[in-house]
Amino acid sequence: MYTFDYHLHSKFSADSEMTMDELCQTAVDKGLDEIAITDHHDIDYKDNTIEFLLDKNKYLKEIEKCQQRYKGDLVIKKGVEIGLQSHILKECNNYLDQDFDFIIGSFHTAEKKDLYNGDFFKNYSQWEAYIQYLKSVLEVVRNYDNYSVIGHLDIIRRYGDFNTQPDLMENNKAAELIREILKIIIRKDKGLEVNTSGYRIDAKNPLPSFEILKLYYKLGGKILTIGSDSHTPDKVTNKFNYTKSKLKEIGFKELTTFAKMKPVFHKI
C-alpha cells in the first residue's frame, strides 16, 4: 500500500523546529513513500507576536536539495499551506503562481481577526463565532480557486475559551453552511484534507470531523488527502491507520496525492 503524509512543517514555518532534512528522514524511518512539505505562508496574519511569511525561492531550493538527497527513498512534493482571507486573494494568487505541486488552503483568521489568540471570539457567543467563521470560509471558496484542498475545515473548534468543542454538524445553520462549502469544493474539483491533529482536541475525530466527512462522501466528494500537521517528528503519521479504517467505513476507497496540482488517486 502506498503511504504518504501531506501536511508537514519544517523550520521554514515559525512554529516548527524540525529541519527539512529531519522531517524527510523521519518520513523515511516511518516507512512513508511520499510526503508534501507544506510550510505556512499567511499574508496579513493578525498576530504581531509571530510571522508566517515564507521566502519562496529559498524554501523551494531547500525542497529541491531534499528531493535529490532522498531520491529513490522518498518522493517529496513542493507544498505550501496558504492562509486564505477574502481581502488578500489576489496577493495569494500572485505569490503561488505555478510553483507548487500541492496547496492547502487554510483559515487561521476570520474577519481580519486571529483565531489562535482569541481576538475573533470577543464579540460572539460560541455558535455565533462558529457560524461567522464558516461564512468567511464560504465567501472565499465561492471566489477563489487556486488551492488543492481545504485544510482542517472545522479548525475553529480548536480555538476559543469554551468548555466544549461540539461537532459543527450539531447546529442546523452551521451544517447548512458546511453543506454549501462542500458542494462548491466538489463542483470546482477541489478536495478536503483529513488532518489528524484534530485528535488532540477530540479523541474520536480528525479535522474535519467524521460527520463532515460523511456528508462530503454523500455529496460525491472524492479528493481527500491525509496529513498529520506535524511540527515535531513524533507526530508524523499520527493515528493514520485508525483514520484510514474510519474513512473506509464511510465508503471512501481512495486517498489522494498531487503532482503539479493534479490529483493522483491511491487505494486506501
Rank of each mutant, 00 (worst) to 15 (best):
His87Met: 12
Gln67Thr: 00
Lys135Gly: 06
Leu115Ala: 03
Ile103Tyr: 08
Val140Thr: 02
His87Glu: 15
His108Val: 06
Asn146Trp: 03
Ile37Met: 06
Asp97Leu: 04
Asp145Pro: 03
Gln132Gly: 00
Glu128Ile: 11
Tyr124His: 15
Trp127Asp: 06
Gln126Trp: 10
Ile37Asn: 06
Lys46Cys: 14
Glu64Met: 09
Lys61Ala: 14
Glu91Asp: 15
Arg158Val: 09
Leu32Asn: 04
Thr38Leu: 08
Asn117Cys: 10
Leu54Ala: 00
Val80Thr: 03
Ile63Gln: 05
Leu74Phe: 08
Tyr130Ile: 04
Lys112Val: 04
Lys122Leu: 13
Glu62Trp: 01
Ile155Cys: 04
Asp154Trp: 09
Glu51Leu: 09
Gln132Lys: 13
Asn93Glu: 15
Asp55Ile: 05
Glu139Tyr: 11
Arg158Pro: 08
Asp97Thr: 01
Lys112Arg: 14
Gly79Pro: 02
Val80His: 01
Glu139Thr: 08
Asn123Leu: 10
Ile150Asn: 12
Lys112His: 14
Glu139His: 12
Gln98Asn: 13
Val140Tyr: 08
Asn117Thr: 10
Cys92Asn: 12
Lys77Ile: 06
Val80Gly: 00
Leu74Ala: 06
Leu96Gln: 04
Leu153Gln: 03
Asn93His: 15
Lys77Tyr: 06
Arg142Phe: 04
Asp145Ser: 07
Glu111Lys: 15
Ile43Glu: 09
His41Glu: 00
Lys71Thr: 14
Tyr70Gly: 00
Ile156Cys: 11
Ala129Gly: 11
Ser148Gln: 08
Leu89Lys: 07
Val80Leu: 02
